[in-house]
Design a protein around this nucleic acid. Sequence first.
DNA 1: CGCTGGTATCAGCGGACGGTGATGTGACAG
DNA 2: CTGTCACATCACCGTCCGCTGATACCAGCG
Lengths: 102, 102
Amino acid sequence: MLTSVDPDVIRVLGDPLRLKIVSLLARETLCTTHLVEETGAKQTNLSNHMRVLREAGLVETEPCGRFTYYRLKPEVLAGLSEQFAELAASARTAADNKRACP
Amino acid sequence: MLTSVDPDVIRVLGDPLRLKIVSLLARETLCTTHLVEETGAKQTNLSNHMRVLREAGLVETEPCGRFTYYRLKPEVLAGLSEQFAELAASARTAADNKRACP
DNA sequence: CGCTGGTATCAGCGGACGGTGATGTGACAG
DNA sequence: CTGTCACATCACCGTCCGCTGATACCAGCG
């Protein structure tokens, strides 16, 4: 029903590093140390991005001793996928649905 | 196959006004004047955003006399939808695929 | 308890981006 | 041709955001 997509979630995913983090977390659940190794970014930088991802509701944290594991929440991505699919479907039918010149 | 999603397209969609423009264009093909009416934004501002959307490959322009119609390209949105769906599917299986602590 | 390693928070800086006004261009009407 | 309208481009400014270094917090280990 063309629900208004939340710009914040998309904005969060617009950053290259965050998108890479999400891609990595889509494969396996990792902790900050792993992400530092994989991305090559500083730990502080990573932690900041993880904070943003957490506040956007994209990841969940799971403490494990001294480590903090991050798990991706698939529902949010699935929701995004569905909303974009709706937009695409609507756009296909709106191709020649032109409003008259004023 | 977990194709790396292009951050640029997502970044472009991360702006609230641009997302609104895309939502409007998903319903009908419009020209700048219509978008000014619908969004309440200044014409210059709109034109700038349309430029960004065009360069990102999200919209096509169709001149019609003095007017310029903007048409959404559904393939890009469909592609995004598919890539997010892949990420979501992958994330579902990776929930308990935890890498060992270092 | 003191030490070490894994994370989070804070303050600051620099670059990028969105908004706005002035101006240019091209097309139609009179 | 002249004016007007639709639209694009340019230059500028304020703000936000990502990156970094310093530092604080917390859990295990000796």
